[in-house]
């Protein structure tokens, strides 16, 4: 399936050749035999006002791996992602409890430098959100905000990250034109490039392909696979086949008792899809529930 989309995209969305990428060839399977936890979540709960959205979630995100979060809509997967980069701070009435550690630091500490944290933990949204600026400015703006000001350095980073996401050949002659003129798939890759420019350790992706057509979706999916090893990726997806293709680890969320979302099962992707321990998981991945 993956191969099929890949070939197809090479014909249509043309410069998706392997040379266009600098992140190296596609890697299959889990690279991490001895997984090292980068983010540890312990007994996390989240409320919007009085309404519980997540209850008692505990899991580890392993360094260099792709972790997929699957489950029906409204079971708190996106809320879970927003806890990891403290975007929950921006939602009025949102309360979080439980322990989250990132790189052995308490991620929920009130004195934590949130801007620095969000530089380390980037986020890609479902709908691509290029800023209404030029392609170049889209990448430069956050970099300048984080203190990089030499134009030569900025140029290097812009070229590097655009090559990383395979967009360089497509846009190198029009870096000064508006990013809003790009296609949906190109916009999403620009957003990924913009996040990569900050050299994050973790990338959170909230259904990054669901607003894209199948071909662009395939291109972005290939790109995510190329991030493996160099970055730690947590991806929320409704596309079970996609989760199965790209993820090393998978977590299955479900809405318990019509109330709050909770984590039913977490483990190696292969195990979740082929030998789930929980009957709900089995029903969901086989398509008989959810």
């Amino acid at each position: 399936m993956s191969h099929f989309t890949n070939n197809k995209s090479e014909q249509v969305d043309k410069p998706n050749t392997d040379d266009a990428y600098t992140l190296g060839p596609l890697q299959a399977g889990p690279p991490c035999c001895d997984p090292e936890p980068l983010i540890r979540v312990d007994n996390l709960s989240l409320h919007y006002g009085e309404k519980p959205a997540l209850e008692g979630v505990s899991l580890d995100i392993y360094k260099g791996c792709i972790t997929a979060l699957i489950g029906p809509s409204g079971c708190g997967k996106t809320s879970f992602l927003s806890v990891l980069n403290r975007l929950t701070d921006m939602i009025p009435g949102c309360r979080v409890s439980g322990n989250v550690h990132f790189d052995h630091r308490n991620l929920r500490h009130p004195a934590l430098d949130v801007q620095r944290l969000r530089r380390d933990i980037g986020m890609i949204f479902q709908k691509p959100v290029p800023f209404p600026l030029s392609i170049r400015r889209n990448i430069e703006l956050p970099l300048r905000e984080h203190g990089m000001s030499k134009q030569a350095e900025l140029n290097d980073v812009v070229q590097q990250v655009l090559q990383d996401v395979g967009l360089w050949d497509e846009v190198k002659d029009r870096l000064a034109s508006s990013a809003l003129a790009l296609s949906g798939g190109q916009q999403q890759r620009l957003c990924i490039a913009r996040a990569l420019a900050l050299q994050p350790k973790v990338l959170l992706m909230d259904e990054p392909c669901s607003a894209l057509d199948p071909i662009s979706s395939g291109v972005v999916e290939d790109l995510i696979q190329r991030l493996r090893g160099k970055y730690t990726v947590v991806i929320v997806t409704h596309n079970l086949a996609q989760a199965r293709r790209i993820a090393n680890y998978a977590g299955f969320f479900w809405i318990k008792d019509q109330r709050a979302g909770c984590l039913i099962e977490f483990g190696q992707c292969k195990q979740i899809f082929e030998a789930p321990a929980h009957e709900l998981t089995a029903a969901y991945v086989n398509g008989s529930r959810g």
Binding site: N85, L87, M90, V114, Q115, R116, L117, R118, R119, G122, M123, F125, V129, F131, L141, P142, E145, H146, C191, R194, A195, L198
Partner: peptide, 8 residues
Amino acid sequence: LSASALGM
């Protein structure tokens, strides 16, 4: 949201 997520 996007700008915050980029640490701006």
